[in-house]
Computed example of a mutant assay.
Amino acid sequence: MSRVVVFDRFGGPDVLRIVEEPVVEPAAGEVRVRIEAFAVNPLDLMMRSGSMPAAVALPHARLGVEGTGLVDAVGPEVTGLEAGDPVILTAVPDASVRGSYAEYTMVPASRVLARPAGLGVAEAAAIWVAYSTAYGALVEKARLRPGDHVLVTAASGGVGRAAMQIANQIGAVPLAVTRHAAKTDDLIAAGAAAVIATDRVDIAEAVRHHTGGAGADIVLDLVMGPGQQDLLAAARPGATLVAAGFLDPRPTPFPGGTSLTIHGYRSFEHTLDTVVVRRMAAFLNAGVRLGALRPAIDEVFGLDDVVAAHRHFEKGIHAGKIVVTV
């Protein structure tokens, strides 16, 4: 049997419960993964609360788009993977049916990658969503280059921290945006070239100061909402803004009359593309090997404490990823 986290109604963390389900055999092209750990992501909270734009079928819905574990069994027609191989999940498109909040899950063999050498289980559970999102937004969409000044909002979160490390690996200059000046030292330690605390300074003025008056070359907006107008003012003419987040539920004004190139971005745009995933994996493995890419872990919970993990996430005070070990 497999212990699985499910929910039968939308609501707060308390709707989550653990049940036991039979362990089934993988179908053709699939692998069964024994999950060792998974990370909590904003998408999980949206699914659980009922705020997802896409429908989530109740009751008995599952959660989890990220995790790491060992291949437990391989289905017919699967090559290149064997039982015991340590892997990370790269995409769980049907998370409400086969999410990673479980002792075992089944995914297409094409949706797992070898776990990068040198990562512990908690780090491996926390690396893919944040780093693939940041890489896809900055490298694949915005064409980040050495020397570019990159303005990163929600810099204390998992994607924000990944974006700063990726910028440093490429030779760009990450400028971190935070609402609280108290986070300055932590963000500098996390890789920011400079920190812009909106409780102290105006974003546009601060960015001009740090870029010699030019403005940011790339803006990674992980928040959205009305505050995006301040980011547009902080960018140089002809810059690129990538909207890759949804932390502010308020409407985002249409950015009319701007010379910026603006992209919307969701990670499944690239994590379902095997060619891009190969590039992501190569970049990730190189960064881990060189010590340039390393996920920050805020706190680790056990599976029995998954409700507490969600409560902790909702407080919004975490610095790095929240991980649950199975």
Rank of each mutant, 00 (worst) to 15 (best):
Asp298Gly: 03
Ala216Gly: 08
Leu241Cys: 07
Gly245Ile: 00
Val219Met: 05
His270Trp: 12
Val276Glu: 15
Leu293Arg: 10
Glu205Trp: 03
Ala206Cys: 06
Asp185Val: 03
Arg311Trp: 11
Phe313Ile: 01
Thr271Leu: 09
Gln228Val: 11
Ala197Lys: 05
Pro295Arg: 07
Gln228Glu: 13
Val242Gln: 01
Ser259Phe: 06
Ala243Leu: 02
Ala309Gly: 09
Ser259Gly: 14
Phe313Thr: 01
Ala286Tyr: 01
Ala234Trp: 11
Ile203Ala: 04
Gly245Met: 03
Asp305Glu: 15
Phe283Gln: 13
Leu303Phe: 15
Gly225Ser: 12
Gly302Pro: 07
Ala216Phe: 02
Ala197His: 09
Gly225Glu: 10
Lys315Cys: 12
Leu272Cys: 07
Ile218Asn: 02
Asp186Met: 02
Gly302His: 13
Glu269Tyr: 09
His209Val: 08
Gly302Lys: 12
Ile188Asn: 00
Thr258Met: 02
Thr258Glu: 05
Ile262Pro: 02
His210Ser: 07
Leu303Ala: 15
His270Pro: 00
Gly212Lys: 13
Leu231Gly: 09
Gly245Trp: 02
Val307Tyr: 14
Leu260Trp: 02
Leu303Ile: 15
Asp199Glu: 09
Val223Ser: 10
Pro226Cys: 10
Arg279Val: 11
Ser267Arg: 05
His263Glu: 03
Val306Trp: 13
Ala292Val: 09
Thr211Gln: 09
Ala214Pro: 00
Val219Phe: 08
Ala204Tyr: 04
Pro249Val: 02
Glu205Ala: 14
Arg279Phe: 10
Pro295Phe: 06
Ala233Ser: 13
Val277Phe: 04
Ala193His: 14
Ala286Pro: 03
Asp221Ser: 07
Pro251Arg: 09
Leu231Ile: 08
Val306Phe: 14
Arg208Pro: 05
Pro251Gln: 10
Phe246Tyr: 12
Val195Gln: 07
Leu284Glu: 12
Pro253Phe: 11
Thr252Trp: 11
Met224Glu: 12
Asp248Phe: 04
Asp199His: 06
Pro237Ser: 12
Thr184Lys: 07
Leu222Ser: 02
Asp199Ala: 08
Val300Tyr: 11
Val306Thr: 14
Ser267Ala: 03
Ala244Gly: 01
Ala233Gln: 12
Leu222Lys: 00
His270Thr: 15
Gly256Ser: 13
Ala206Asp: 07
Arg266Thr: 08
Arg250Pro: 00
Thr184Met: 00
Gly212Ala: 13
Asp199Arg: 04
Ala190Ile: 03
Gly302Trp: 05
Pro226Val: 07
Gly227Met: 11
Phe268Asp: 10
Met280Pro: 10
Thr258Asn: 04
Glu205Gly: 12
Ala235Asp: 11
Phe268Thr: 06
Asp248Glu: 04
Thr240Gly: 00
Ala206Asn: 06
Gly256Thr: 13
Thr184Trp: 03
Asp304Glu: 15
Leu232Ser: 01
Val219Ser: 06
Ala234Gln: 12
Val277Tyr: 07
Ala239Val: 06
Asp248Pro: 03
Leu231Thr: 10
Asp298Pro: 01
Ile297Tyr: 10
Phe268Cys: 00
Ala192Ile: 06
